[in-house]
Design a protein around this nucleic acid. Structure first.
Lengths: 369, 369
DNA sequence: GTCGTGTTTCAAAACGTTTAGCTGCGCCTG
DNA sequence: CAGGCGCAGCTAAACGTTTTGAAACACGAC
């Protein structure tokens, strides 16, 4: 049954190759390939012979060889600043879920927000011939050489959570303006009329967007913009603490904080100053995490759709890979206002929450170490 | 200068290949390859001609082709239950750092702790011919077929944070026994002598190890083992809350909690019962995260070396890839007791901490959204 | 008998590298 | 000047697939 053709003998230490299967079952390589990719018409007897040989040899197609000839790796590269930053795991997960669904895998790189590491990573991914790249760009511009490469190379890029004016590529971002706007409107609806802001560094685009949303919401609600109620922080806990002290000394009755870490800092300041959260002032924070569920009062936050951010970016990228050329798209995802207790709707909200677990979204993903 | 040999013409839409460079610079493929891998002896003039051509064509070696012939992909597969589980990002990061350092990349998969997804992922990684696999095994056993495959296939596996008796492979885990032991000894040193335990599910091996450490430490310190002071939870917030109520009703003066989520639950119970932490009882928690820095009192915890877990696993794997065969190794990493305030050493510890930022390890990695 | 048509199978080229083996060539040595 | 030895560079095989074009064969129709 075997050993008809003069195909190469199988190497000892190696995994079985298609020609091993062919030899074992006495057919040509072509036929094996046809069976593996279950092409239409292979005779029943041959098909069975081949299938037996595949099982016997524990044959597994070599996707490297397939990639080489098909010029497709079914792999997408993803570069994030740091997977340890709690913002990103969910984004990566979203991208992986979407990619997986369409038969793609994720090659992950961390840039540490360093341009040099980012360049190395991109070069590497290009050399590995990934089919496309999801990039959360590090701060700063590409080197001219890399910029040229990116424009010329014909693999698609999709920017995640960043846009760069000099780079006309697809991007998927969150609508930070809208998120901030809603946050402030919610405070206003809750009857607050001296609303303060703890902002991120205004040179960063998303901080600026959040500030714009804050300002426009005040205007919309015909509330005064009081400059002493706007404090610029740097997105870290410590700066939230300091900004909190500064801001609270002016006794606002509502605060919107542009990031969850500064909220944590703020709450420490609140404790020190002996103030009470929903009673003395309403609070809306930005970006939500399961562990925030342990804070009292439960925080009303504007949640950024992190999973969706990753999945939509991956889907868009895969569309591009599939040949959908056309104008670059800028996709803005809407954040979601999660009303809990920190604005003073406690009685209503807590009733609703008592039915659910203490922290939501479910902390199921946190278990098992 | 060009067009001497009868090499194939370059395809239009494609990236430049080595033969394009050869044609452009009028040398053979061999010479280009030698220049790219800067092999020893290529004449200076030729080398420069080739280098110019490489720049001109923006040539980038195709690592797919290289992998095919070298039978090495310089890629390692990593399977974790869920990157969104906060335990894993740091482990993945550790693996990536170590891999990167040695010229390897990480292909990441999530198994959701499902055996089926785990199998699919492993099959895929094998087909992609990764050089090795880092696996945090999902609960349960491999299917017989897969088990056989894994034993026969000659790519190395290293288990991360798991060991399986039926699978004789390398493993890198944390020494949970030792961590628990130290935690309880610390409580004893702080003068506590009625120490309770909130344990994980005892069918899980690491929960059992932590329980053993707890019990042996009591014995060592000649303290009584009081069964009503041991409560089994399920590693979730809610169960910590319930266990806390049950446990505190017996008025222990020290508590060791086997996981950080249950600690969060416990602290809610503490608040409800009107107890105070270092005053009424000492507390040591397990596993540390930056955001725990915002709890008051600052928690004394046993930190698992997550980054090291990933990096040591990757290093071991790469050693195996490099051909270091030999008996499977079981590497236990020592956890680190981080003494803060929740055991009653407040005055000493807080002085030391006042110099540093409010939460440590540094929250630098948390910024920028 | 010849021609077309369709089915099943095959041989060989292609993908972009690395590398073993070989060819000249210049230089040294006797 | 013959022989040997490096050196620089080349040719061609190999890696494991997919896929093109064609062969072999059967079956009817003319």
């Amino acid at each position: 049954m075997s050993s008809s053709k003069r195909s190469r003998p199988s190497k000892p230490g190696r995994a079985a190759s298609i020609s091993d299967v062919a030899r074992e079952s006495g057919v040509s390589i072509f036929t094996v390939s046809a069976v593996v990719n279950n092409k239409s018409h292979v005779g029943k007897t041959l098909r069975e012979r081949v299938e037996n040989a595949i099982r016997k040899l524990n044959y597994r197609p070599n996707l490297i060889a397939r990639s080489l000839i098909k010029q497709k790796t079914q792999t997408i590269g993803m570069i994030v600043p740091d997977i340890v930053n709690p913002f990103f795991p969910m984004v990566v997960r979203g991208a992986e879920d979407a990619a997986q669904k369409q038969g793609y895998n994720l090659l992950l790189c961390n840039s540490d927000d360093s341009l040099a590491k980012e360049e190395t990573a991109i070069e590497l991914l290009l050399s590995k011939r990934v089919d496309g790249i999801l990039l959360t760009k590090a701060a700063g511009e590409f080197s001219p050489a890399l910029h040229k490469t990116i424009q010329e190379v014909n693999i698609p890029f999709v920017l995640v959570m960043r846009t760069y004016p000099t780079l006309t590529k697809d991007a998927v971002i969150t609508d930070d303006y809208q998120g901030a706007y809603e946050a402030v409107c919610h405070l206003a609806r809750a009857g607050r009329n001296r609303i303060g802001l703890i902002s991120g560094p205004l040179r960063i685009s998303n901080a600026k967007e959040r500030w714009r949303g804050f300002r426009d919401a005040l205007e919309e609600k015909k509330l005064p913009y009081e400059p002493e109620l706007v404090v610029e922080g740097d997105y870290r806990i410590e700066s939230g603490f300091r900004a909190g002290h500064a801001l609270l000394s002016h006794r606002p009755d509502g605060i919107y904080v542009a990031n969850h870490l500064m909220t944590i800092g703020l709450l420490q300041a609140v404790e020190e100053m002996g103030l009470k959260c929903p009673e003395d002032f309403g609070l809306v924070s930005f970006d939500d995490y399961p562990w925030l569920g342990v804070f009292r009062p439960r925080l009303t936050t504007v949640e950024l759709p992190k999973h969706q951010l990753g999945s939509e970016a991956a889907e868009l990228l895969i569309q591009r890979i599939g040949g959908n050329h056309g104008k670059p798209v800028l996709k803005k995802l809407l954040p979601e206002l999660r009303i809990r207790e920190s604005c003073g709707f406690a009685q209503f909200v807590s009733a609703e929450h008592r039915r659910a677990a203490p922290s939501e979204p479910s902390d199921a993903s946190l278990v098992n170490k």
